[in-house]
Amino acid sequence: VSKTDIKHMMAFIEQEANEKAEEIDAKAEEEFNIEKGRLVQTQRLKIMEYYEKKEKQIEQQKKIQMSNLMNQARLKVLKARDDMISEMLNEARQRLANVAKDPARYPTLLDGLILQGFYQLLEPKLTVRCRKQDLQVVQASIQKNIPIYKAAVKTNLEVRIDQDNFLPPDVSGGVEIYNSSGKIKVSNTLESRLDLMAQQMMPEIRVALFGANPNRKFMD
């Protein structure tokens, strides 16, 4: 083999090696680009999922905050309404004193309160507590109503006024009636009757002040 042949063989081998190296480089670059694209896509999906999750969390937090704000606003409205009703009832309580000062109305009112107490207790012996300044008008009302009670119930009735324990000065009028043991009481003071009436009429009071509740489906 001549030197020329050897050079040709070496050149051929070197050319094949270069081509093989280029092929390997091209293959490696292709695989690199594929892998890079896969990793980029994977990371892109992870980033999208992360921000979608964050967006949902923010939306949920926004809904919770809006719900809390609405609840707080609703509670403020309810409190404002309750405060208005309380002010109205307090004003009504202050006016109760004027009822007891009316000589044309108060004795008739006492008659009804006392007779109602008799019927509620249905006991043969009763004790009445009243304001000290009402002592005479209460005595007259008791004597007037005992015959009415006896005629209706067909039983005797003894009533005494507790003159050792009058109703406190902050009571505007009316009476408290106890059974003989003192364990059962009917409170027919003006304040207690106002509270009872307010409790019974609260739905009508709310409608009169604030209008009908559009969310209410059933009426009592």
Rank of each mutant, 00 (worst) to 15 (best):
173 G>V: 02
4 T>L: 09
100 A>Q: 05
109 L>P: 02
3 K>A: 13
19 E>F: 08
138 V>L: 04
112 G>C: 06
166 F>C: 02
181 S>T: 13
28 A>K: 13
15 Q>M: 10
60 Q>C: 05
41 Q>G: 13
131 R>T: 08
218 F>R: 13
185 K>T: 03
126 L>E: 04
90 N>R: 09
136 Q>W: 02
51 Y>W: 05
98 N>M: 05
208 A>F: 11
36 K>V: 15
203 P>N: 14
60 Q>P: 01
79 K>H: 11
8 H>N: 06
207 V>M: 07
139 Q>V: 08
10 M>V: 13
5 D>T: 03
164 D>L: 07
140 A>G: 10
148 I>Q: 06
126 L>A: 06
206 R>D: 07
151 A>C: 01
10 M>T: 12
198 A>P: 05
159 V>R: 08
142 I>A: 03
162 D>E: 03
74 R>Q: 12
168 P>N: 02
157 L>W: 01
197 M>N: 10
36 K>L: 15
27 K>S: 15
165 N>T: 04
176 E>G: 01
220 D>P: 15
45 L>T: 04
184 I>S: 11
78 L>M: 14
49 E>S: 09
78 L>E: 15
116 Q>F: 02
209 L>V: 08
49 E>D: 10
100 A>I: 00
127 T>Q: 00
179 N>P: 05
114 I>G: 10
196 L>S: 14
164 D>R: 00
52 E>Y: 04
207 V>L: 07
10 M>L: 12
94 Q>T: 05
28 A>N: 10
215 N>K: 15
24 I>T: 04
103 P>W: 07
153 V>E: 04
62 K>G: 01
116 Q>I: 00
187 S>Q: 00
76 K>E: 08
191 E>A: 05
107 P>A: 08
37 G>Y: 15
172 S>C: 04
64 I>C: 03
147 P>C: 03
203 P>I: 12
188 N>R: 04
143 Q>N: 14
52 E>M: 08
126 L>C: 05
196 L>V: 11
150 K>F: 01
46 K>W: 08
46 K>A: 14
184 I>M: 07
100 A>Y: 06
53 K>V: 05
111 D>E: 12
138 V>A: 09
129 R>P: 06
188 N>T: 09
81 R>P: 13
148 I>W: 02
177 I>W: 03
87 E>W: 08
41 Q>E: 14
8 H>S: 07
156 N>H: 08
126 L>P: 03
5 D>C: 06
141 S>A: 15
205 I>A: 13
62 K>P: 01
25 D>E: 11
148 I>N: 02
87 E>N: 11
56 K>T: 01
118 F>N: 02
77 V>Q: 14
59 E>Y: 07
105 R>D: 03
22 E>G: 00
40 V>T: 13
5 D>Q: 07
107 P>L: 06
34 I>H: 14
140 A>P: 03
113 L>I: 11
109 L>S: 07
158 E>N: 04
53 K>E: 08
86 S>G: 00
1 V>S: 10
208 A>L: 15
218 F>V: 15
93 R>L: 00
39 L>V: 11
169 P>T: 13
63 K>H: 10
141 S>L: 03
36 K>Q: 14
118 F>C: 06
